[in-house]
């Protein structure tokens, strides 16, 4: 359906914006390494199911793309364009996010099974993975426009999945409570950012937090 397609497209675009921004400016200023490391964890724990679960060629290719691009981005950030200045303001304690997501995944899962716990963990972790990046934005008070486009496209992906889930619930009777709940949590975390993005960036102002 259109929402899912638009969501996936926006997910894809967000990664391309980020890669393009890093490659062109040859800099990772303003980008949170911690958020990027969390995404590697999210993609690895959710998408390694491609080794034992086949959905479609599209699904497999997308999973491979998200795993490899997220690892590549972390590689660029650590080895190629290392930025100690940005690292110094990237101080969000992610061990709490990882630990909390792990505990939640043990409590909330469809079956107490390795694959299902990993799946649940990835959903919880994804819902909060942007926090170090938003925290960094808040500390610096402003961001490059491209960075804000990246965050927007990434947030749009899960937000667009919400109408997709409603659509699938109506048309197929399919409900994934975990994905829906964590997707809503994720969208709420983004809501403040979306609001500022709409008011500043789309109207041509510099992205500055009020």
């Amino acid at each position: 359906n259109i929402f899912r397609a638009a969501g996936d497209l926006s997910h894809l675009i967000s990664i391309l914006i980020l890669l393009n921004t890093i490659q062109k400016s040859r800099s990772i200023a303003g980008i949170s390494l911690k958020t990027q490391i969390l995404y590697v964890l999210v993609f690895l724990t959710r998408y390694l199911d491609l080794t034992y679960r086949y959905v479609s060629i599209y699904n497999t290719l997308m999973k491979l793309f998200f795993i490899s691009s997220s690892i590549y981005i972390v590689y660029l950030m650590i080895y190629k364009f290392k930025n100690t200045e940005t690292e110094q303001i990237d101080t969000f304690p992610i061990e709490y996010l990882i630990g909390g997501s792990f505990i939640l995944s043990l409590i909330f899962n469809y079956k107490f099974q390795f694959g299902e716990i990993l799946w649940s963990f990835s959903l919880w972790l994804e819902s909060v993975a942007i926090l170090p990046q938003l925290f960094m934005l808040q500390r610096t008070g402003e961001a490059r426009t491209l960075t804000t486009h990246y965050i927007f496209a990434l947030g749009a992906y899960r937000t667009l999945y919400i109408p997709n889930w409603i659509f699938r619930w109506i048309s197929e009777g399919r409900v994934d409570y975990l994905a829906i709940f964590t997707g809503i949590v994720q969208t709420i975390i983004y809501s403040d950012f979306f609001y500022i993005y709409y008011h500043r960036v789309l109207k041509g102002f510099k992205f500055e937090l009020p």
Binding site: H11, V55, K63, Y110, W119, V175
Partner: peptide, 10 residues
């Protein structure tokens, strides 16, 4: 038991 939804999304 609980029904596991098919994990066919990204």
């Amino acid at each position: 038991g609980k029904k596991i939804p098919n994990h066919d999304e990204l």
